[in-house]
Amino acid sequence: MVLSELQKNQIAVIREVTHPQEEMQRQLLALGFDPGENVQLMTKAPFGHTLQIKVGTTLVAMHSDDAKYVYLCDLL
């Protein structure tokens, strides 16, 4: 399962992050997208394309195109 598939308010654990763009990969890691970290989909922006994600205690806005490179452990 990937982050862009997460339902609203669902919490999951990151398995790995493999963004094809090196710059984005670095930024994701710097913002705290680490394996083992909790992620939660807080809300979607109007028209759905942009997501508000809580990773650890950080709130992050990102496009669902980028969120699909964040792989999640199976939900409990």
Binding site: M24, L59, A61
Partner: peptide
């Protein structure tokens, strides 16, 4: 230019 957004939303 790629439109990618990866922005922290502060408290």
């Amino acid at each position: 230019v790629r439109v990618s957004v990866l922005m922290e939303m502060p408290h």
